[in-house]
Simulated assay, not measured.
Amino acid sequence: MDINSILGILFAFGAILGGNFLEGGHLSSLMQFTAFIIVGGGTVSACMVQMPLRQFLGGWKMLGWVFMPPKLNPAEAIEKIVGWSNIARKEGLLGLEAISENEPDLFARKGLQLLVDGSEPEMIRGILEVDISTKEHHSLSSAKMFEAMGGYAPTIGILGAVMGLIHVMNNLADPSKLGGGIAVAFVATIYGVGSANLFFLPFANKLKGVINAQTRYQEMIMEGVISIAEGENPRNIETKLQGYIY
């Protein structure tokens, strides 16, 4: 679990609500269901128009990575790759066949299968690079959904503010209805700007960081598999791959 993301959100709420309290404001003044519907519904709808359904749904599926990113253990992966190299030197590449069948990481399993099949190093690189590039492109496209939401939300918030002011202007003769319209106007702006800068844009950048880490992890595995195919010394392979750890 990424405790930094959870703490960041808690601190954001604490800072805003705490500042509102210090200024003499009340929590109820920030709770406007109408403003929430305008900003939330408008922002999501704009994203649905912008991107294909698969990309839109993929973004929501990846949201959990902000709090629980996929577990990557480069040190453990290097240890496994060095073990594969030792087996290949002692038993030949066919000695990796049983290991490839039981490898839980699909990308590593594909690399091992290419090794067992006797593929040339350049062919292995070409095949695995396509896999890495395709997955990275798909993941980044889904992560951009939150980036798009961060762009639309403030504008939709302004739209909600204008709608609230229109309501105020239409009810100038009835002072009892002015408060609600003014509240919707200002709270909609807060929702739009706040959601963009506290949630959507940070979510997008966090997901990009997770995707970048996954890409580097797979590149490390690819280099290890290619090094085994080229018959490099296990110790040299370990030294090379340790450069991916930072």
Rank of each mutant, 00 (worst) to 15 (best):
S119E: 15
M149R: 09
L178N: 07
M1N: 11
G180Y: 03
L201V: 12
A46H: 09
E101N: 12
G42P: 04
F203A: 09
E230D: 03
I221G: 05
V193W: 08
Y217S: 07
D105C: 11
E23T: 04
V44H: 09
W60E: 07
L128W: 00
S100R: 10
E103P: 11
R54Q: 14
G25H: 11
D117R: 03
T43W: 08
A196Y: 07
L63Q: 11
M48R: 14
E230K: 08
T239W: 12
N233Y: 03
G160Y: 08
G181M: 00
G192Q: 04
A204D: 05
G209Q: 09
V162F: 01
L57M: 15
M149S: 01
G192A: 04
G194P: 00
V193Q: 11
T215L: 01
S227M: 12
G243M: 13
V130P: 05
G151A: 00
E23R: 11
I87V: 13
N20I: 14
V49F: 15
L112M: 15
F36S: 11
L115A: 14
P69T: 05
E136D: 04
I132W: 04
M145H: 01
L93R: 03
I158Q: 04
N171H: 06
R54C: 08
Q55D: 02
T134E: 13
Q113K: 15
N20M: 15
I245C: 13
S227L: 07
N86E: 13
W84L: 09
L241Q: 12
L165H: 09
F21R: 14
A173R: 00
G111L: 12
M51D: 08
S139M: 06
L53A: 15
S85K: 02
L27P: 10
T34K: 15
F146S: 04
Y244C: 02
K206D: 07
E230I: 02
L72N: 04
K80T: 00
T43M: 13
G111R: 10
G243K: 15
S142W: 07
G18D: 13
A185Y: 06
D2I: 02
T239Q: 14
I166N: 02
Q218C: 10
G224N: 01
H137D: 06
G151F: 04
L27I: 14
P154D: 03
